[in-house]
Amino acid sequence: MKVVVIGGTGLIGSKVVEKLNAHGHEAVPAAPNTGVNTLTGEGLPEVLKGASVVVDVSNSPSFADDDVMSFFRTSTTNLLKAEAEAGVTHHVALSVVGTERLQESGYFRAKQAQEELIKASGIPYTIVHATQFFEFAKGLADGVTEGDTVRLPAAKIQPIVSDDVAAAVGRTSVGAPTNGVLEVGGPEAFQLEEFIRMGLAAKNDPRKIVTDPHARYWGAELEENTLLPGPGAHIAETRFADWLAQQQ
């Protein structure tokens, strides 16, 4: 089976390509550095020739509200049009647990717009909603740091390692389309403060971490369970503490 992975040279995409090829599929990475640009359409007809499945794990290079909305609208529209012309029979997209609950955030409004385009396209699809990645603990802290203080909302998070996300996306891509959303998360829920504290401590990062009821998450207010997957989610096995120990 030929599977084209949009964003196939990035963190998740490269792992999806590797896992699919290891299982005997023809996984093709597609990104600007391989001559495929979903914003312009460059290279799409060529790379999609003979493809049964397209996996989209691409992301906007800018998270500014207008930029990220433009990226997902333009990229997804061009990609779905090219897929229809190429006869692709399954579109798989990676999105985020809680997207529909985070619409105060420009980034998540753009992800919601992406999902709506997919659902309206007529192409059979599966959308994979993943929780926050282990690898992004520091980046999340950086985005809410004031001086030497990290201010976090009082909410829970159930993070997952990127390898387990890639495995879930890969399995989904070679399965039947669900025309719905599949949630994946890690095995443990933490308070945001605890997750970030563990991540920074592993890097000997001395920043002070506080819980602030007015703090926001990518511009959105959180309820306690906003970022948690629902009861039907696929739960991965890798624990955060075990992964941190492996990074030392």
Rank of each mutant, 00 (worst) to 15 (best):
G7I: 07
L11R: 14
I12N: 10
V16W: 10
K19T: 13
K19E: 15
L20N: 12
L20M: 12
G24K: 08
G24A: 12
H25W: 11
V28C: 10
G35E: 11
N37D: 15
T38P: 01
L39Y: 09
T40D: 13
G41L: 12
G43R: 12
L48E: 07
S58T: 10
S62A: 12
A64D: 14
D67L: 08
V68M: 06
M69T: 11
S70H: 12
T74V: 09
T77P: 00
L80W: 08
K81P: 00
A84Y: 01
A84G: 15
H90M: 07
V96Y: 13
E104W: 00
E115C: 10
E116S: 14
A120Y: 08
S121F: 14
I127N: 14
T131G: 13
F133E: 06
F133V: 03
F136K: 01
L140S: 09
G143Y: 02
V144Q: 04
G147W: 05
T149D: 01
V150D: 05
V150M: 02
V150L: 04
L152F: 07
K156N: 09
V165P: 06
A166P: 06
A167W: 05
V169Y: 03
G170R: 06
A176M: 06
V181C: 04
L192C: 03
E194Q: 12
M198D: 03
L200I: 07
L200S: 09
A201G: 01
K203G: 02
D212V: 09
Y217T: 10
N225S: 15
P229T: 14
G230D: 10
G230M: 10
G230N: 11
P231K: 14
A236T: 13
E237N: 13
R239W: 01
W243K: 08
W243A: 10
